[in-house]
């Protein structure tokens, strides 16, 4: 569907030329969701703009469908663009038009017959789940709703390709997921090819079939998320993957743990929270020795923040009454917050 070969792009600035894209070659199959991840300045914005001719490469070719955008005339580009939808980080809706008007705008540009517009707009509003909001102005919508309008507008002319320029970066995590789910369902339903750029590994893991990692204008590594997780070679790729494991571990551990399902005998289940130096000291071993108790760690995790490590542990303490009180007091002296979750 899309083939980029040896695309190069330079920008001249007051402080000399900057290489935005350096010999980029990639292929996107029809129906694929292709992710491009990179930090800001890596060249991903320039790359996605090559795919609808908003930027032209200085050398190399950009073939979308059967048109080489790098040599197409402005008129050819204008004709090709309705078939290449695009959504944006800041939505880029016209504030002067309603939801329906914004969607109709794409159809007007493509020269769709006026009488056919209202029905198509209604269909698109249903598709993105904005029933009843057709008459609202963008200023009356939430960020997620605005992006849904953006998606409806991008899909208006039944494109072959959808380009997503940091489409979820301005949204909160829950809204991000609902927009990603919408993109995924559209991809499945219409076999639409999607190219998205992002700096969030979460976005890639959730919907992308293939991901290319960009750094300094080059694609440094490419593969499925699973392939990259198995053998990422580039440090930048590992950095992005770490983003993923940290989020996921914290979330999945907590989700899978139920303190009421633990068998604690006659002791107590105690939740310990330590941060800074306390988290690293062998406090538990000390407790075990001093009180002659065998402690059982039931559940826990450590996370690393700028200030150092912080940890949360669920520990089964086989003690009760006065002895339990003494253990908690001893922990409190060492800056460890302890609370009894359950008693046996």
């Amino acid at each position: 569907m899309i083939t980029l070969s040896h695309a190069k792009k330079l920008f001249s600035t007051s402080s000399g030329a900057i290489t935005a894209l350096d010999d980029v070659t990639l292929t996107v199959e029809r129906g694929q969701i292709f992710g491009i991840i990179g930090y800001s300045g890596a060249g991903k914005s320039t790359l996605i703009r090559l795919l609808n001719g908003l930027e032209r490469p200085d050398s190399g070719s950009v073939i979308v469908g059967d048109l080489d955008l790098s040599v197409a005339s402005e008129a050819q580009l204008a004709r090709a663009r309705p078939k290449i939808g695009m959504i944006f980080q800041h939505f880029n809706l016209l504030w002067s038009r309603t939801v329906a008007g914004n969607i109709a705008f794409a159809l007007e540009i493509a020269g769709v017959d006026k009488s056919a517009i209202p029905a198509r707009v209604a269909e698109l509003i249903r598709l993105v789940g904005l029933e009843g909001r057709g008459g609202a102005y963008p200023s009356q919508l939430s960020g997620g709703q605005k992006q849904r309008v953006g998606i409806a507008r991008a899909l208006a002319n039944r494109p072959d390709v959808l380009l997503c320029d940091e489409a979820t970066s301005a949204l909160d995590p829950e809204t991000t997921d609902s927009i990603l789910d919408l993109l995924l369902s559209i991809n499945r339903r219409f076999n639409l090819t999607i190219v998205l750029i992002t700096h969030e590994m979460h976005v890639v893991r959730r919907i992308c079939d293939v991901v290319a990692v960009m750094e300094a204008g080059r694609i440094v590594e490419q593969g499925t998320v699973a392939e990259l997780q198995a053998n990422a070679k580039q440090p930048v790729t590992r950095r992005f993957l770490r983003q993923l494991t940290e989020d996921a571990e914290a979330q999945e551990l907590d989700e899978g743990f139920d303190p009421y399902a633990v068998d604690i005998g006659s002791g107590a289940l105690v939740r310990l929270v330590a941060s800074g130096a306390g988290a690293r000291d062998l406090v538990l071993a000390d407790v075990a020795r001093r009180f002659n108790l065998s402690l059982d760690i039931v559940h826990g995790h450590l996370s690393f923040t700028r200030e150092g490590a912080s940890g949360e542990l669920y520990v089964e303490v086989p003690a009760k009454g006065q002895e339990l009180v003494e253990v908690l007091a001893w922990l409190a002296e060492r800056d460890i917050a302890a609370e009894i979750v359950r008693r046996g």
């Binding site: 908003l54 204008a78 880029n92 809706l93 016209l94 705008f105 540009i109």
Partner: peptide
């Protein structure tokens, strides 16, 4: 006028008149 909106217009295939 928001430059992003002008870019979106171009991306949809809009010319000078639009």
């Amino acid at each position: 006028v928001d430059r992003g909106v002008l870019e979106a217009t171009r991306a949809m295939g809009g010319g000078i008149f639009t």
